[in-house]
Write a protein that binds this DNA or RNA. Structure first.
Lengths: 138, 138
DNA sequence: CGGGATCCAATACGATACTG
DNA sequence: CAGTATCGTATTGGATCCCG
């Protein structure tokens, strides 16, 4: 099952770098938590627990299906806890687990970085696109 | 250009939360840098500049097309610098800009978190899947 | 209310072939 | 070497309907 020819300590491997083989768990997990919706949901669940419909309203643009899928994956990874109350109408509350809260901290630092550098990036994009347009015209 | 009906300071807005409207720039940027390949490329480019083929070998599983696309996007966002040497055969080196290096720091903290919690997550997944299998069998 | 199931469209992506 | 262009597929995700 392990991809051959790339064991730890071999050439191509750097002790200060991380395992980035395609089939390694770190990359699988990273792909999962760093997707379009998970970051949003994790950010929202920090603080207070939320109900399904509440989340759907809060995450602008998410469909019911994707909210379900995202929550199931986060629950499966032990990052979100799903609490079902046996009442009618049904009441389900989602909250971060303690590990989930730990993740939120680093996610928040990524968000903060993005906020702080938004202007720079937008400017860079505009300049790049202007250059490209100019090149295409020629 | 701004989506109406959701200005800062209105109901639904929390000063400690970030702008998560679908069309906001923070979310667009986040989607871009948190995609399948960008994190890998940013992590690799930290330290020394690298050439195209070198990167392709280092990022296990990436296709030529996706490496090109990823690098173009990172360059467009001002996170990666592309240096072309006019020699034959051509030599192109990619490196992080100073802003890109700043991003790498927070990305690295996400990677570190993932490494530290891999075991927990894998265990959570196995437990979840066992529960699901049991439920499906019934 | 909180979803599951199904169908369909958009897009992301890989494979391949070609080029300066 | 470092790409671009094209094509076909696979995955993602939205819309809709339904149910406890």
């Amino acid at each position: 099952m392990q991809s051959p020819g790339y064991p730890r300590g071999t050439e191509g491997w750097d002790a200060f770098q991380w395992d980035r083989r395609e089939d390694c768990e770190v990359r699988q997990i990273l792909d999962r938590i760093a997707d379009k919706w998970s970051l949003l949901v994790i950010a929202l669940l920090d603080g207070a627990p939320m109900r399904f419909t509440e989340l759907q309203r809060a995450v602008d643009g998410i469909s019911q299906r994707m909210l379900t899928v995202t929550l199931r994956n986060l629950e499966r990874d032990g990052l979100v806890h799903r609490e079902v109350y046996a009442v009618i109408p049904p009441r389900v509350e989602y909250s971060l687990t303690s590990v989930g809260r730990g993740l939120h901290a680093t996610v928040q630092s990524l968000v903060t970085w993005t906020e702080e550098n938004t202007e720079y990036i937008v400017r860079a994009r505009n300049e790049y696109d202007r250059r490209e347009d100019g090149a295409a015209a020629r």
